[in-house]
Amino acid sequence: MILHICSATEWTGQEYRAPSLETDGFIHCSDPGTVHLPANSLYAGRIDLVLLEIDPARLDVPMRWEPGVPPHPAGIWFPHVYGPINADAVVAVHDFLPASDGAFRPPDSVARP
């Protein structure tokens, strides 16, 4: 499974198009072990977020593992979805709130290998 962070109002249950699809040509995603990296870097203080849990096998568009944009200092690769995310590829939606210390961690409800 891969994950995408967005606001609760951005996810409508329909085909999903993140702004990065226009600017970067793909939708930025993470896996359960890396989702905290972009969350803590880009979304500090946000309490309106959800995680879209996406089954890559159900995507109607290509997904590739590539270096982050910008590249992560540790060389971590992330899944990038090259087109809109079809609604039936989203198998679950999880509230994504920071912990009491303000840091994001994956919710226990996210599927792990």
Rank of each mutant, 00 (worst) to 15 (best):
residue 73 P to I: 12
residue 37 L to R: 12
residue 17 R to C: 15
residue 24 D to Q: 15
residue 42 L to P: 01
residue 17 R to I: 15
residue 33 G to L: 13
residue 20 S to L: 02
residue 76 I to C: 12
residue 100 S to Y: 10
residue 112 R to C: 00
residue 107 P to N: 01
residue 95 D to H: 13
residue 29 C to V: 08
residue 90 V to F: 00
residue 49 L to R: 06
residue 29 C to G: 14
residue 70 P to I: 08
residue 60 D to Y: 01
residue 55 D to A: 11
residue 77 W to P: 02
residue 102 G to W: 10
residue 43 Y to E: 07
residue 45 G to P: 01
residue 34 T to N: 06
residue 16 Y to F: 15
residue 110 V to M: 03
residue 92 A to Q: 08
residue 38 P to K: 10
residue 96 F to Q: 06
residue 112 R to T: 02
residue 19 P to E: 03
residue 37 L to A: 07
residue 46 R to H: 05
residue 69 V to Y: 02
residue 47 I to K: 15
residue 111 A to C: 13
residue 18 A to H: 14
residue 26 F to K: 07
residue 104 F to P: 05
residue 37 L to K: 08
residue 86 N to L: 10
residue 24 D to F: 15
residue 85 I to N: 02
residue 44 A to F: 06
residue 107 P to Y: 07
residue 92 A to S: 14
residue 83 G to N: 08
residue 50 V to H: 11
residue 19 P to I: 03
residue 103 A to W: 14
residue 40 N to W: 05
residue 92 A to G: 03
residue 22 E to I: 04
residue 95 D to T: 15
residue 48 D to H: 11
residue 99 A to D: 13
residue 50 V to C: 05
residue 46 R to E: 06
residue 100 S to D: 14
residue 55 D to Y: 02
residue 39 A to C: 04
residue 107 P to I: 11
residue 65 W to S: 13
residue 111 A to G: 11
residue 50 V to E: 05
residue 79 P to E: 03
residue 50 V to F: 07
residue 110 V to E: 04
residue 26 F to E: 07
residue 86 N to V: 14
residue 62 P to K: 00
residue 108 D to L: 10
residue 111 A to R: 15
residue 57 A to N: 13
residue 77 W to F: 14
residue 97 L to N: 08
residue 55 D to F: 05
residue 38 P to M: 08
residue 22 E to N: 09
residue 106 P to Y: 07
residue 19 P to Y: 04
residue 88 D to F: 01
residue 96 F to R: 08
residue 36 H to Y: 09
residue 39 A to D: 04
residue 76 I to N: 09
residue 87 A to I: 12
residue 26 F to I: 02
residue 33 G to Y: 14
residue 42 L to V: 11
residue 65 W to Q: 07
residue 41 S to R: 13
residue 89 A to W: 05
residue 88 D to N: 01
residue 26 F to P: 01
residue 68 G to A: 02
residue 65 W to K: 10
residue 107 P to H: 03
residue 28 H to I: 13
residue 56 P to W: 14
residue 37 L to W: 03
residue 81 V to W: 02
residue 92 A to N: 12
residue 96 F to Y: 13
residue 70 P to G: 08
residue 110 V to N: 00
residue 17 R to Y: 07
residue 53 E to A: 09
residue 21 L to R: 08
residue 43 Y to A: 09
residue 30 S to M: 04
residue 70 P to F: 09
residue 38 P to F: 09
residue 45 G to V: 10
residue 88 D to P: 00
residue 90 V to G: 00
residue 24 D to G: 11
residue 39 A to N: 11
residue 20 S to V: 00
residue 39 A to E: 11
residue 26 F to W: 02
residue 76 I to R: 09
residue 54 I to R: 07
residue 50 V to M: 00
residue 51 L to R: 12
residue 105 R to C: 05
residue 106 P to I: 13
residue 41 S to T: 12
residue 45 G to C: 06
residue 47 I to G: 10
residue 52 L to P: 06
residue 21 L to Q: 10
residue 91 V to S: 06
residue 77 W to N: 14
residue 85 I to S: 11
residue 29 C to A: 15
residue 63 M to G: 01
residue 50 V to T: 04
residue 24 D to N: 14
residue 27 I to G: 05
residue 56 P to I: 12
residue 94 H to I: 14
